[in-house]
Amino acid sequence: EQHESQKPDTKSLVRQMHEAYLKHFHMNKAKARVFLTGKTSTPPFVIHDMDTLQHAERKLHTQLLGNVASGDASSLQEREVEARLFLFCQYASVETVTELTEFAKAVPGFAALDLNDQVTLLKYGVYEALFALLASCMNKDGLLVARGGGFITREFLKSLRKPFSDMMEPKFQFAMRFNALELDDSDLALFVAAIICCGDRPGLSDVSHIERIQESIIHALRLQLLSNHPDNALLFPKLLQKLADLRQLVTEHAELVQEINKTEDASLHPLLQEIYRDMY
């Protein structure tokens, strides 16, 4: 394995994925930890109740909602708090899906795949990847939002009315277990690539091509973990287990979103609609 890790193609794959990750994701674990540990001159604004949420909406409007049309924005304040938070989540998700798409294209071999297979890999992979990345923005007390401008407390999210109160708690529980593995951004880059390039998504046409890409990423991930975490020999199998946990997390999340979509007056962004439709 010592010898294997010296192979230039694996080393360059590790480096390439790390660079693409830093290039395409505006937030990463190193940046998030600076905000979460208070080592910044501009600490995030803490959102812990309705008043602080309203204050944050005025203060962080662009970071929370991106370039939402001004008409939508002006009617937003009339909507209930749960619907507004659901909308912020959606905009953050759309942004991350866009970043993940660019990151996926940087995985060697991905762009050469049949376009239908690229669509399928993203459809099934983006939410698993999103929740893995979200863990970097979480600690036991809350979640960093609006590019580090805000911090929503876990208690406030739990205090929302049902079914919205059930939205984030499972992600916190996953994040606490996942963060205990102490991965850094160079590990996460390969982990996210492994999530996306997964040969057993439903309806893939060129499975063997995807499995070859997957194999090279998993191989690189194993060697990366051995060299970056030499004292934790079980990290690689533990991380493979997290892939299964993420799949379960997404299945439950998709069910909850379908329920909200059916029973609440909360419209779903067209990109997210595409992803959820006929998913599981």
């Binding site: 899906v97 866009t98 798409t101 660019e102 294209k105 376009l115 239908n116 690229q118 669509v119 399928t120 993203l122 459809k123 309806g203 067209p270 990109l271 595409e274 992803i275 439709r277 006929d278």
Partner: peptide
């Protein structure tokens, strides 16, 4: 199939866009 792309027009467009 063709319908997969049609059902995922935005994803498809994101994939075909160059780096912005």
């Amino acid at each position: 199939s063709h319908t997969l792309q049609e059902k995922h027009k935005i994803l498809h467009k994101l994939l075909q866009n160059g780096n912005t």
